[in-house]
Design a protein around this nucleic acid. Structure first.
Lengths: 199, 199
DNA sequence: CGTAAATGTTAGGGTCGGCTAAATTGATCC
DNA sequence: GGATCAATTTAGCCGACCCTAACATTTACG
């Protein structure tokens, strides 16, 4: 992880990130060399997965219980996740029946920090004629999520690639029960799939 | 409200409270004269009732949905209340069916800041032979709440005062379906009642 | 291989909210 | 009515966290 990328993600200046990294390094959560980027230590990984778990459990709760749309819940969960007592997160998780994934399909780590592997393959990596099953989608852009939902590109959906434009990389996918949709490469990369069309 | 009392309630020094009050006074939320104590303005009252609403809705949610005991939820709600987006509080309120009170019986203000009156009368204000209905209890001491629940002294319970000790003020109440309990004056003051034994 | 551009860090400064210690005010009691 | 005491405020400090501007390092390219 580079300082600048972190800064952009957090919406602060790189200067601020330098200070944070030094701090986290002192606390043993990241390995960090000046000018050399940062990497989570095992402890840091565990702490991070704890936060990820809170975030994803909350997203599930917001969609399944409070009926928020999946395009809103990333931002909402982000606001809530740091103030919720751990016992409350645990209780919500139980209430939901220990869900395996967040609404966007990402796996929820368990309390020990174990987490299921995520598929590497995206729609952009498919060839014409391939069949696949949607597993997860990037959750950062509400407008994109809205669009994907309208076109049936949600976790669990089964699709077939009907065309791949060799010039600009545009992909046309037919979603079972939801018609055909053309996707630019950037969009196609936001949807992760697996080749198994199980169930 | 005096500076020192606020400081004690908040667990900070009076010096810190002086600064806060000046701030709030500049924002028009309290009327404040140096050395003269502070009082909420109409705006401050509205803002405060908004926070009270969040707090009590959350308490209801924690007991009714997440199955926490009523002795824990004040502290938990306190941690959560400032980070929850307003829309989430609204959604929880709807989910619960717009409850009228928190688990301890205190009325929940509506979004416009209207709030039902709370009874002034406590068990300590009753005489031998009086019948009354428990309306609300102080929520600050978990051990007290545990005790009250065991003895059936919860909102809605109907009771009769069987003795009042004229020397030390000890009161013995018989709770319908839950036997008799002796209460010291300080404890008796923590339970508010109304004389109507309706319903 | 050396220099320019990109990237990252340090220095220094501002705000916020807490603290302690000292000064001030108000209240009480003789 | 003055002295003392409690309550409160002011003054000054600290740490967290952000910023900008200046400096340092790495990377990339001719």
């Amino acid at each position: 992880m580079r300082t600048g990328d972190i800064a952009q993600r957090l919406g602060v200046t790189p200067a601020s990130v330098s200070g944070m990294l030094k701090h986290l390094s002192r606390e043993g959560l990241v390995n960090y060399r000046e000018y050399g980027g940062a990497l989570l230590t095992a402890d840091g990984e565990r702490a991070a997965l704890g936060v990820v778990r809170r975030h994803r459990v909350l997203e599930r709760f917001l969609t399944d219980v409070l009926q928020f749309g999946w395009e809103q819940v990333d931002a909402l969960a982000h606001q809530m996740e740091h103030a919720l007592p751990e016992v409350v997160v645990d209780a919500i998780e139980r209430l939901l029946g220990d869900p395996a994934t967040c609404p966007h399909g990402h796996p929820i780590p368990d309390k020990e920090g174990r987490v299921a592997a995520e598929p590497r393959l995206t729609i952009g990596g498919l060839a014409a004629g391939d069949r696949a099953c949607v597993r997860e989608v990037d959750e950062f852009d509400p407008a994109l999520l809205d669009f994907l939902q309208q076109r049936g590109l949600v976790p669990g959906a089964v699709l077939r690639v009907s065309q791949v434009n060799p010039i600009d990389g545009t992909v046309v996918v037919e979603v079972v029960d939801a018609g055909a949709t053309a996707l630019a490469p950037a969009t196609a990369k936001a949807v992760r799939v697996s080749r198994e069309v199980a169930e």
